[in-house]
Amino acid sequence: MAVIELADYGPDFNVNPYPYYAKLREAGPVHEVVGLDGNRFWLVVGYEEGRSALADSRLSKAPATMGYEPGDEAIMGPHVLTLDPPDHTRLRKLVAPEFTPRRVEALRPRVQRITDELLDAMVPAGHADLVDALAFPLPITVISELLGVPHADRDTFRAWTNEIVAPTTPTGPRDNTIALCAYLDELIEDKRCSAPADDLLSTLLRTRAEDGDRLSAAELRAWAYVLLIAGHETTVNLISNAVRSLLSHPGQLAALRADFSLLDGAIEETLRYEGPVETSTIRFTREPVSYGGTEIPARQTVLVALASADRDPTRFPDPDSFDIRRSATPGRGPAHLAFGHGIHFCIGAPLARLEGRIAVRALLERCPGLAFDPEAGPYEWLPGMLIRGVRELPVRW
């Protein structure tokens, strides 16, 4: 099997990767590729194969167990995205009680108030960059309040996290990881020395399991890092991708405006059709594995193309159509992989869904004439293969 150079696809692969993923799926569900950064890995593009890989214990998330030099995890400390059981199980168990559907639902009034305040400031102008005015400030405010991060530091967080997940320079991820972790160390120490508070970091400082287990300082910093990144960067693009998809499909937008009971379906279809995470984080083969008849040797890097799996026609009929009723159709969904699958399924999925639903509904109710800004130029797409979205979304109403 020939090794595929993704760079040969040119800039259009970043703008619209779906036709390229379709061609790859037609040729087979798994391919050895050279990525846009020059690194070589195995890319899983089929739905069933991707779902299997995400839950396959023969694939490790821990570079150290494979004999690889640690990357940025050496700076931030051990965290759930780079650990296998039992360490992964232990860390997730200590934090999971704070992200149950019941706990997240209790945040609904505050998420609604933040959304309303942002729209109060945005609507009178008649136009806005939706990313800057709503899609970014909503989730960063929610996760910052949840963790107990001061309001004045949130723009700095945005700059750090943008460079970590969609870097514009080769040293961006490492430099900004160092800066963010140093800040988190100071924040955690301040909370440790302060009177007890009810934010998440303060709660986790006090959390002990039934057997007395608790998070170390390094583990707490790593959790804060993961929650800040995953807790807002993906939701920014869920909101903006949902609005962009709806505005690009006027019939679907009209149906949603006429019947907001379709809202859950609209969010789920956005997650499938234009999800905020294009590929999974990396995994490593402990031993030879085979998916769809293709064998991947041991000690290889594997990425699952979530954006491709969620448009696989063997799982989703007419996959390139945006259909907000899809999840309500028996046998058709919503089994997308946008939040992953298996033990690494996104712990923040309930919060992301809540924020997406509230933001989209409030925006449509407050802006009945919402449309793309006709004077806007071409989109600037986020670089790389991790996050799918645009830096700005100019709209008017």
Rank of each mutant, 00 (worst) to 15 (best):
G331V: 01
E268T: 04
P297C: 10
L247R: 11
D153Q: 09
V104E: 08
L354R: 13
I140D: 03
G172W: 11
G67S: 04
T294M: 03
R286C: 07
A182L: 13
Y225T: 14
P330V: 02
D129H: 01
L205P: 02
D72H: 03
G50A: 04
T161P: 00
R353C: 04
G342E: 12
D190Y: 02
T177W: 04
G126K: 02
G348H: 00
T169W: 03
G212I: 05
P317S: 14
A159G: 13
G28F: 00
Y20H: 15
P276R: 08
C193E: 13
A224F: 04
D318P: 05
G331C: 03
A22S: 14
H344N: 08
L228T: 14
L36D: 10
E145M: 05
V395P: 09
T235P: 09
R174M: 04
I296G: 03
D175Q: 09
P70K: 02
T279A: 01
L337E: 06
R102M: 04
P173W: 12
R244S: 14
W397E: 07
P374L: 02
Q252C: 03
P85A: 08
P297V: 07
L262N: 11
H341S: 08
V3H: 08
D213C: 09
D155K: 08
L386I: 15
D84C: 00
G172R: 08
L303W: 14
R299A: 14
P139Q: 02
A62R: 13
A159V: 11
